[in-house]
Design a protein around this nucleic acid. Structure first.
Lengths: 117, 117
DNA sequence: CTCGTAGTACGGTGACCCTCGTACTATCCG
DNA sequence: CGGATAGTACGAGGGTCACCGTACTACGAG
């Protein structure tokens, strides 16, 4: 079985977390994971990029400590490390998710950000 | 009098806010502004970069909607737009500031948590 | 008016990041 | 075994960013 390196809770760096969440595609992934559907394979995400770019984004999220990944067959199950993240940086993930959710609703800035891809 | 463009509250984009806060130098600026000392000139910040780079960082923060700047003589007064930011993205700035504060203690945040707070 | 201070504009450099295509590995199914 | 599926490795290209030095502008003090 292949294994994937994950940072320890204490090793999670604010720098990496914020950089990871600064990318719209990665926020889509995180939002979808937070939206009740944990344990999704990478293929389950409808991302506007190719497979290799998806791999890249998932790795960035994993190395930042935001998600955990484990193999099941050829697929990978992705989980949000929400509890550990809340322990390390309380309220941060919730605030970003809420912000992401509220921004998707209304204003013009989101549309521009989405089309930019 | 020169004037500086600031985004409206509704125009503040999560993308720009997170990107701006992803840089350690800019988080130092924000933390210092949040630490009671509002209305500081750019020169008051002891940043490990040259003047031109400082200008760059302050502009990024202003264009992201995180700080406001207004002239007073040759100097610029910098203010955190904390209330507007809390209105747009509730809890986000607080979470980042708290995370920044806790992380400064060192990568093993457990032992040193009680020192400064 | 002249000087000093605070900050900006501009150009350049090196690094990093997002993106992709192609080739590859690992696992499951028939 | 052979094929299909899920994801990785690798390298390249294009864009953006942080950083700097130098030259410049705006304002206040003397």
């Amino acid at each position: 079985m292949r294994s994937l390196p994950h940072p320890d809770v204490q090793e999670i760096a604010l720098d990496q977390v914020l950089s990871a969440l600064a990318d719209p595609i990665r926020r889509v992934i995180v939002s979808q994971l937070a939206g009740g559907h944990d344990d999704q394979a990478c293929i389950a995400f409808d991302l506007p990029v190719t497979k290799s770019t998806s791999t890249h984004h998932f790795r960035v999220l994993r190395e930042a400590g935001i998600i955990s990944q484990r193999y099941r067959g050829t697929a990978i199950l992705n989980c949000l490390r929400d509890e550990e993240l809340a322990e390390r940086f309380p309220g941060l993930l919730d605030a970003v998710l809420a912000a992401e959710g509220s921004e998707v609703q209304g204003t013009t800035a989101t549309a521009a950000a989405a089309r930019r891809l």
